[in-house]
Simulated scan of single mutants.
Amino acid sequence: MISTSLSDTASPYAAALARLPVRRCEAELLGGTTRYWDYGDADAATTLVLVHGFRGDHHGLEPVVAQLEGMRLISPDLPGFGESTPMTEASHDIEGYARWLRAFVAGLGLTGRVVLLGHSFGSIVVSATLADPAAERPDAVVLVNPIGQPALQGPRGILTRLAIFYYWLAAALPERLGFALLRNRVIVRVMSIAMAKTKQPALRRWIHGQHDSYFSAFSDRRVVLEAFRASVSHDVSEFAARIPERTLLVAAVDDDITPIAAERRLRGLFPDARLVEIGGVGHLIHYEKPVEAATAIEEFLA
């Protein structure tokens, strides 16, 4: 049986996050409402815009946000996920999300140094956005757990194939049953157990609680199916050569989605990229090793 109390497990990063001022904002973009959280000093010289991964929301990157000082950090929920409503003027595919991110950043009217950060699926969205030469250019790019090769080529390609079947079945079933399957707590827990690498019981409980609370916070079946197809149909490698900005890749040695060898190859596809490898963690750097990730980001930006 899956415990219903895990979502109440205290965050190990709560105290650090509580020190940051935060403002909840929203913007009307492409026929939907994007809600975003603006952390830190609004007048800071450096602003990071953070894009979270598939089926998550802004909460997933808060452990990293909590470790970054002296910066402004703007973290939206992707359209159709978390508290953001779906787009009505674009599909929820890579092209649609790239259009959305360009519009979102432009609408912020940022000054000073601007950095785009994407985690997992967000790394594809950020890369696709910047591959357009007409996009507003940031000063630097950070990709955490970047999807560096096609998902089916990963060390657990069989799990990706199972995921493809799972989402196909969710699309084939009647609306109510398909929606229920997508939010099935047992399947969410299996996913969480498969990705977590930490041996710390308290941290594992908290990670499972985060997935219980936020992994099913999507608006409807159509959005999540469109986004899933996008997540397995594209990867950062197809856009890397068209991103001239200084880029930091923060990769996990034990990532089951993109192996570290592929991340090393990915670094060579960018005109100007640095790779930081973090050991003892898989695809959940943002939950298990946020201090190490933040340190890499700060050193890169310094």
Rank of each mutant, 00 (worst) to 15 (best):
V125W: 00
E26S: 15
A66K: 10
T247Y: 04
A135L: 05
I285W: 01
R189V: 01
G60V: 06
F165G: 09
G53N: 01
G148Q: 07
P138C: 07
F270L: 10
G122K: 08
P138R: 05
L203R: 10
P259F: 04
F215M: 10
L48Y: 06
T47S: 12
L29D: 00
E245C: 08
T4M: 09
E69R: 05
Q149C: 14
V188H: 11
L169K: 10
P76Q: 02
G107M: 09
A171N: 14
E62M: 11
G148M: 09
E28P: 00
V250R: 01
I297V: 14
L284V: 06
D38R: 08
T295Y: 02
V64L: 11
D57L: 08
R229F: 06
R267C: 14
R189M: 13
L17R: 13
A15V: 07
F228K: 00
E277L: 11
A18N: 08
V141D: 02
I158T: 07
M195R: 09
E299A: 15
P259D: 15
H234Y: 15
R156Q: 15
A261C: 12
P271I: 07
V144I: 14
D256Y: 02
M87K: 02
I147Q: 10
K199R: 14
E175K: 13
D132F: 06
I74L: 13
A27H: 03
I257C: 04
K197Q: 10
D212M: 07
E277T: 14
P63A: 08
S192F: 10
V281A: 15
A273I: 05
V232G: 00
T9Q: 14
D235A: 10
M87S: 11
H283F: 06
H283S: 14
L20P: 00
A103E: 12
G56S: 13
H283G: 13
F218W: 11
P146Y: 12
R264Q: 15
L203S: 09
R274H: 12
A14M: 03
P201G: 03
P150I: 02
F218D: 01
L159S: 12
G209K: 02
V142M: 09
E28R: 12
I147S: 13
T258S: 15
H59Q: 14
L177S: 10
A240P: 01
L20K: 12
S237N: 05
A135N: 07
G40S: 04
R185S: 13
G80E: 03
E89T: 03
A217L: 06
S192Y: 09
D139T: 01
P133C: 03
R99C: 08
R246H: 06
R24W: 07
G82E: 11
A170H: 02
R246I: 00
A151R: 07
F104V: 03
C25L: 15
N145Y: 01
D41M: 03
R99P: 02
I297H: 02
F104R: 00
V141E: 08
D43L: 13
L162W: 14
F121C: 05
V188R: 11
G154V: 10
A294Y: 11
A134I: 04
Q149S: 12
